[in-house]
């Protein structure tokens, strides 16, 4: 199995419905609004990168997509299926929904008591009830895809950050998701590991996988994204093609953010 094959097995590309459609999303934590009336759409096969300074609400927006975070109000539709409407979750089966939405965390969150290959097998077996033999084969194929066959039997603590993150990507891919969410996947990594992880993400993008990426790697986002979303203070300040938002930003806050980026390094 290849990354490309996984994607074609999913339904993302064949359908023309948006993979994610969010309207009027509001989310607050103990009275403080951190997402204020946000609209956000991801089309099939698109790569959408969310950029913005820390505390802007990027992670919260992403966690609302798979309902790890329950919004206060708004509408969330995944592949045409309403999952949140008004002020309540309307998705009957949250587990099924999350199987279709893979998530990769900044700090990997691999299961430390299991080897790499078992990490990739667990949800296949316990969630999708895939027989062990098949789950193992899929896991080994995916580890090969991310270049980690030789680490299949290693435990997370024996692996570098970059290796862990690539296992985490394989783990998310194992359920054959229609959408992958990345929350600052390289922020905890050294430059070399970052390069390896970005290479895997690049290949996923080329294979047609639909992806939402929160990242501080502006050049990378510019290179692979179909759309850039700049969030600040819980608002989407500006969104559009990288050639607009990154190369020719219209809003002052976007300009300021991108400028601070360049001076940072």
């Amino acid at each position: 199995m290849t990354i490309g094959k996984i994607e074609s097995e999913g339904s993302a590309v064949t359908s023309t419905l948006p993979v994610v459609e969010i309207r009027s999303l509001v989310k607050s934590f103990s009275g403080r609004t951190v997402l204020d009336n946000v609209d956000f759409t991801v089309k099939p096969g698109n790569i959408v990168s969310i950029i913005g300074r820390s505390g802007g609400g990027k992670t919260t927006l992403m966690r609302c997509i798979n309902l790890l975070e329950k919004p206060d109000s708004g509408f969330i539709t995944l592949q045409g299926e309403p999952v949140f409407s008004g002020d309540k979750t309307v998705c009957k089966d949250l587990a099924k929904l999350r199987q279709r939405v893979g998530m990769v965390f900044q700090r990997f969150y691999l299961f430390p008591h299991l080897t790499a290959v078992e990490n990739v097998m667990l949800a296949q077996m316990k969630g999708l009830k895939i027989p062990e033999k098949k789950a193992l084969e899929t896991a080994l194929e995916l580890l090969a895809e991310v270049g980690l066959t030789h680490r299949a039997l290693a435990f997370p603590e024996q692996m570098s950050g970059g290796e862990q993150q690539r296992v985490a990507i394989a783990r998310a891919l194992a359920l054959g998701p229609s959408l992958l969410l990345f929350d600052e996947p390289t922020s905890a990594l050294d430059p070399e590991s970052t390069r390896d992880v970005l290479a895997v993400m690049r290949r996923l993008a080329r294979s047609g996988m639909t992806m939402v990426i929160v990242t501080h790697e502006v050049p990378f986002a510019r290179e692979i994204s179909d759309k850039i979303v700049f969030i600040d203070g819980g608002h989407i300040i500006e969104q559009g093609h990288p050639s607009e938002v990154i190369d020719n930003p219209r809003e002052d806050r976007t300009k300021a953010f991108l400028r601070s980026y360049k001076t940072d390094g």
Binding site: A95, L97, R98, Q99, M103, F105, L122
Partner: peptide, 9 residues
């Protein structure tokens, strides 16, 4: 969280 995100109950 990782378990939840993988759709595990």
């Amino acid at each position: 969280e990782a378990g939840q995100a993988l759709g595990l109950g």
